[in-house]
């Protein structure tokens, strides 16, 4: 359990990276999160989490091609590693397990 511990923000970031699949770089992730969750995400917070997840081995990254946009700087695309996928699945199962364990009565009311 503790092995797979993910913070709430970390989990959302990983999920977003998964959603964007092959197009997950910094700005895209922020846009996606702001759109879907309707919450402000600061670039600093996101970048820190991304690097942390990468260091933990949940994400891997590669550079894209340089374009004229962005001052000629390359994008860094993030993808889930298989370990990251496993962790996400485990987290999801934990959540589902919790949901399932709730007596039906609670939400029927």
């Amino acid at each position: 359990m503790s092995k797979h511990h993910l913070g709430e923000f970390e989990e959302i970031v990983m999920l977003t990276v998964a959603i964007l699949y092959d197009e997950a770089y910094g700005i895209a992730i922020i846009d996606e999160m702001e759109e879907r969750l309707g919450r402000k995400v600061s670039i600093g917070a996101l970048q820190t989490v991304l690097r942390r997840l990468e260091k933990k081995g949940y994400l891997s990254s590669r550079f894209g091609e340089a374009t004229k946009m962005r001052g000629g700087k390359r994008k860094r695309y993030f993808t889930l590693t298989s370990y990251g996928k496993k962790v996400l699945t485990a987290v999801k199962e934990q959540r589902v397990g919790l949901w399932n364990a709730i007596p039906k009565l609670v939400f029927n009311e």
């Binding site: 910094g26 670039i43 690097r51 946009m69 962005r70 001052g71």
Partner: peptide, 14 residues
């Protein structure tokens, strides 16, 4: 991290 984050910064700026 310098290159890609700087790129992100530029993109947001643009």
């Amino acid at each position: 991290y310098r290159e890609d984050i700087e790129g992100d910064l530029m993109e947001r700026f643009e």
